[in-house]
Each structure stands twice: as C-alpha cells, then as structure tokens.
Simulated scan of single mutants.
Amino acid sequence: MIPFNKPYLSGNETKYIEQAVNSGKISGNGMFTQKCQHFFEQKYSFKKCLLTTSCTDALEMAAILANIKEGDEVIVPSFTFVSTAIAFVRQGAKIVFADSYSNNPNIDVEKIEALITPKTRAIVPVHYAGVACDMDKIMQLAEKYNLIVIEDAAQAIDSFYKGKPLGSIGHMAAFSFHETKNIIAGEGGMISINDDKFIPRAEIIWEKGTNRAEFFRGEVNKYGWVDIGSSFLPSEVIAAFLWAQIENLDKIQEKRLQHWDYYYNNLNHWATKNGIQIMKIPDYATNNGHMFYLVCDSLIQRTALINDLKENNILAVFHYISLHSSPYYESKHDGRDLLNSDSFTNKLLRLPMYYELDVEFIVNKIITFGN
C-alpha cells in the first residue's frame, strides 16, 4: 500500500537527539530549541518565535495573548481542523464560522465584514494546503475594526503571500511540525509573534506563567509566578529532531514541489474530462508543496475514486468535516448555511504527498478511473 503520508528522515535526527541527551539538558529551551527559533526568525523575519509541543498549543498561546475571554467572538473558517476553533473556545469565546470560497477552501474574505460585531476580537485565517488567504483584505478589516489577526499557518511553512512569508503578516501565527507536515518533529509546533506588544508576555505564558526566561538571561535576580500560562515548550528531544529537518528544508521543498508539479501537469486533462477540479494557486500566493487535492463533482464520485485507488494499493483520503455541523458545536452555531465548506467536506480528496513518493505510478492509476 502506498500510504497517504510517510515521514522524511534525513539521517541526523537520532544523532542530534543523542547529542541533546548527552548534553545533560533535555528539558525545554536548550541549545536545539534556540537554534530552531533563531532559524525561523532569521529566514522568515518573524519578530519572535517560540517552539511549542503542538500547533494546538501555539493557538492556545495566541488565544491567551489576545486576551480572549468569555463572550468574545472569534471569526474562524468552518473548513478547518478542530484546533483552530477549540483554542478560543477554551477561553470562553463564541466561534463565528465563515464560509470558504466556492473554488478555494480558504476563508471567503468578502463575507468576513458582515460577521463582525462589537463583540468580535479576532480573525483566524487558515492557509489551507499552505496556500495564502487574501491577507491584505483581512488586515484592512482588522485595522478598521481594531481586531487581532492570528494566522493558522499549520500547513504553511515556507509559503508566501505577495512575497511575504505566511506567519509574518498577522499579529501572531501558529505552525505545525506534526508528522504529516513538510518538516516534522513527530508532534511539535511554533508560535510566531509579529507585534512587539505581545512578545514580553508570550515568553512568560510559554514558561508556565513565570519570568523564568528573564531570570536565566540575568535580567531579574529571581523568578516567580507573574501571569497565567502553561507548559507549552517542548523538550530538547523534539527540538533536536526538528533541527535535522530544518537543515534539509530546501531539499524537502524541492522534491515536494516536483511531485506537486507532476500531479498538476499530468492530471489536468483527466480532471476536466471527469468533471473534477484540480488544485489551483491564486496569483497572490505561492505553493509550498504541502498538499495536492482534487475536488470531485459529488460525494459518490469521491467515494468511488477512493475505493478505486485503494484497490490499486494507493491510500487517498478526504479531509475536514465542517466544524459548524460538528456534534459539539452544531447547537451553538447561528444556523447560517455554509454551502462551500460543506461542499469541500463532501468532495475534496487529498492525494499522497511525501518525499519518496512514486508520483508517476499514482497518476497512471488515477487516469484509468472513469475510462
């Protein structure tokens, strides 16, 4: 069976983990943590980066930093992973779900302003498949209504909007290094902070509500409990694994983009013939090779294609179920129909994507479908 995902290993992951263990410092915020954070700050011009144990943790940190509280409203796309919403639900917020575009799973920015009320505190755009949302329009709305923008960039490492790295545009952003992402740490994540006013508090929240980091830098003569927070920082074992991946980022990206281009160039004719849409990249966005998806013409067609590929030992999968219709939040949703989100729920199909992929074999099997 060709899996949907297979983690890439550079060969240095265990070497660096052993180095971290032998250093006698395997708790968080050691040498490898700082190397990783410095890399992202330098390469993508994020003002401050802090590694976390997951992207969910990074989103939860962002919700705390944004001072989201009971009764606040946060605008989130319905077609996303549950972490995008739950980080703010845990702070007591009401989630106001937005629909996707008809031809793109990203949040439809033209529908956001109508959702803003005096209780709205934040907008959380999700860069689905690593493809940028229309960030200029989102940031204009944020400025107009004094809102905080938190980019869910879980899938968006090394992707850009009009030349700006995703995760560098909003006030804050959250990234994932889960094993399904381009560079990985098994689990793992990162918050990037681009507004100076959030940086001092971020480090405190990251360190369980203490000013421990300031103490170890010699900026205070003792440390104590000064704010809320949690144990968000990962161990050096996770950071050491991630550093081995970071060293190979360009190599990984080059290969994934080759696979993406092969899918795109060789499935166009077949897709048109079968009434299937293939993934497109807007002019303002770049492609980071995170994912290649198809949008079938119906749930029936998608199910048939999944089954056909499985019979050929290829695992293709669907993705999110609209959060507004989820068992937990359905009764809390305001009742609006989000037709595009539901359409992607029923029709979107993700094809295998990983470094060692035999993409030619998969394409050859796909184009036999419907013939």
Rank of each mutant, 00 (worst) to 15 (best):
L166E: 00
L166S: 09
L166R: 01
L166N: 03
G167S: 10
G167Q: 05
G167N: 09
S168W: 14
I169L: 10
G170W: 14
G170L: 07
G170E: 07
G170C: 06
G170T: 09
H171Q: 14
H171I: 11
H171Y: 13
H171W: 12
H171C: 10
M172S: 04
M172P: 08
A173D: 05
A173L: 09
A174W: 02
A174F: 02
A174Q: 08
F175W: 04
F175G: 00
S176L: 05
S176Y: 09
S176W: 04
F177M: 03
F177V: 04
H178Y: 15
H178V: 01
H178G: 08
E179C: 06
E179M: 11
E179R: 11
E179D: 14
T180C: 15
T180N: 13
T180F: 12
K181F: 08
K181M: 14
N182E: 13
N182Q: 15
N182T: 15
I183N: 00
I183K: 03
A185S: 15
A185W: 07
A185H: 03
G186D: 07
G186I: 09
E187L: 15
E187N: 15
E187F: 12
G188V: 12
G188T: 09
G188N: 04
G188F: 11
G189A: 07
M190C: 00
I191C: 03
S192E: 01
I193F: 12
I193Y: 14
I193L: 14
N194Y: 00
D195W: 08
D195Y: 08
D195T: 15
D196K: 05
D196P: 00
D196Q: 09
K197C: 09
K197E: 10
K197G: 05
K197S: 14
F198E: 02
F198T: 03
I199A: 02
P200D: 14
P200K: 14
P200Y: 07
P200T: 01
P200I: 10
P200G: 10
R201H: 13
R201F: 11
A202K: 08
E203K: 15
E203V: 15
I204Q: 11
I204R: 14
I205Y: 14
I205V: 13
I205Q: 01
I205E: 01
I205C: 02
W206P: 02
W206F: 09
W206L: 03
W206Y: 10
W206I: 06
E207C: 13
E207Q: 14
K208D: 13
G209E: 07
T210P: 05
T210V: 04
